[in-house]
Amino acid sequence: MIFRKVEHLLPLAVLLHLSIIPTETKVVTSVEECNEFFLQQTPPRIPGILEGGDILDQNRYRMICQTFNDIRTFVTLYDTHNKIPVFSAAKISKIKTSIRVGVAKNITLKNQAGNDDYKNTQGFDRGHLFPSSYGSTESEQSSTFTLTNIVPQTDNFNQGSWNKMEICIKCVLNEYCINNNGNIEGFVVIGAKPSSRNILNKKINIPSVLWSAFCCYSHSKKKWLASAHWGKNTADGPKYLQTQNLKALQRTLGV
């Protein structure tokens, strides 16, 4: 992960069960076609997957410009082998308080996970990477309900420490990530580290670790701010995820 001039900052996902929302995926062959969602238009480095802005295996990993009503809202790098996203990234401009809940109608990417793959999965939620609660408009919030933005997450982790972390970061973005023009502006990247052999319904990789990072320039602090969080995707983890800096996240992910 590359964020420049950053400092360590101390301190939803939701279940999908209601209406069907017409969310689209637009698969692109070049990261440059969706780079507005990355800080300085520079995507993260994922060794062996995404390096120097190039997707090393485009047959397996697909870059998706998540789109709702013909408006691009965030970007996802999707692993068609594990059937989970590698990461989702977005530029935050402002954050609404309301959350629209639904199930994405999104079966358009070849070899992606489908709704049937998530049936009979007691103990697991369909966990968002880019959460609906971070969306600045109803379209942005609705667009997160896509299966290409979803990973199997243990319900205790998803509804516990991971949810608390998302709420905390949302508060930080609202309070501190105010740019020189007086507007909320920040960049977030949320990812999943696949497990070696843990498979849901013999189809979908259950990530061993989920991670989240954000960066923004704070006019009031007159400096760049950033932090990272991660946790094991298990039912018996800590109550709260410790706030870390980006270098610690890089070491953990082997970046």
Rank of each mutant, 00 (worst) to 15 (best):
Ser98His: 12
Gln41Cys: 11
Asn120Pro: 01
Gly160Ala: 08
Leu109Gln: 10
Thr80Lys: 03
Leu77Met: 02
Cys171Gln: 11
Thr146Lys: 00
Thr137Arg: 07
Ser88Asp: 02
Ile107Glu: 15
Ser98Pro: 01
Asp117Thr: 00
Val172Arg: 10
Asn111Phe: 12
Tyr118Thr: 02
Val75Thr: 15
Asp54Asn: 12
Asn35Cys: 06
Phe157Cys: 01
Asp54Tyr: 08
Gln66Lys: 05
Asn149Trp: 04
Lys94Cys: 09
Pro131Cys: 12
Phe130Asp: 05
Ser133Ile: 13
Ile84Thr: 02
Glu138Asn: 14
Gln58Asn: 14
Ser98Asp: 14
Glu175Asp: 14
Met63Lys: 05
Gln122Leu: 15
Asn115Asp: 15
Lys105Gly: 15
Ala113Met: 09
Gly160Met: 07
Asn82Arg: 10
Gly48Asp: 11
Gly135Asp: 05
Glu140Leu: 05
Asn69Asp: 15
Glu166Gly: 09
Thr137Glu: 02
Arg100Pro: 06
Phe37Pro: 01
Ala113Tyr: 01
Gly53Glu: 11
Tyr118Cys: 03
Pro131Leu: 02
Ser143Thr: 03
Thr76Glu: 11
Asn106His: 03
Arg126Glu: 05
Ser132Cys: 14
Lys170Met: 12
Ile167His: 13
Ile46Ser: 06
Glu51Thr: 11
Glu175Phe: 07
Arg72Pro: 10
Lys105Cys: 04
Arg60Val: 11
Gly53Asp: 09
Ser161Thr: 01
His81Cys: 09
Ile167Ser: 13
Phe130Lys: 09
Leu147His: 03
Arg100Val: 15
Asn158Cys: 04
His81Trp: 03
Leu129His: 03
Ile150Val: 15
Asp116Arg: 12
Lys96Val: 09
Phe38Glu: 04
Val86Pro: 04
Cys34Trp: 02
Asp125Asn: 14
Pro43Gln: 06
Gln153Lys: 07
Thr144Lys: 00
Asn106Gly: 05
Ser93Leu: 12
Phe87Leu: 10
Gly127Gln: 05
Met165Tyr: 09
Val151Gly: 04
Ile49Gln: 06
Asn120Lys: 15
Asp125Arg: 06
Thr76Tyr: 03
Leu109Glu: 12
Ser88Leu: 01
Thr67Gln: 08
Arg60Gly: 06
Tyr78Ala: 07
Thr97Tyr: 10
Pro44His: 07
Leu77Val: 06
Asp79Thr: 00
Phe74Trp: 01
Met63Leu: 15
His81Thr: 10
Asp70Cys: 00
Lys110Asn: 15
Phe145Lys: 05
Asn163His: 13
Phe130Gly: 03
Gln112Trp: 02
Thr42Gln: 11
Pro47Asp: 11
Thr144Asp: 02
Ile71Ala: 14
Val86Leu: 08
Thr97Lys: 10
Ile84Cys: 05
Gly123Cys: 01
Ala89Tyr: 02
Lys91Ser: 14
Ser161Tyr: 01
Ile169Tyr: 04
Ile107Ala: 10
Ile46Phe: 11
Arg45Phe: 10
Thr146Val: 14
Tyr78Ile: 03
Ser139Gly: 02
Phe74Tyr: 15
Ser133Gln: 07
Val31Pro: 03
Pro152Met: 06
Thr108Val: 09
Ala104Glu: 12
Val75His: 07
Arg72Lys: 13
Ala90Gly: 07
Ile49Arg: 09
Glu51Gly: 06
Phe87Trp: 12
Phe38Ile: 10
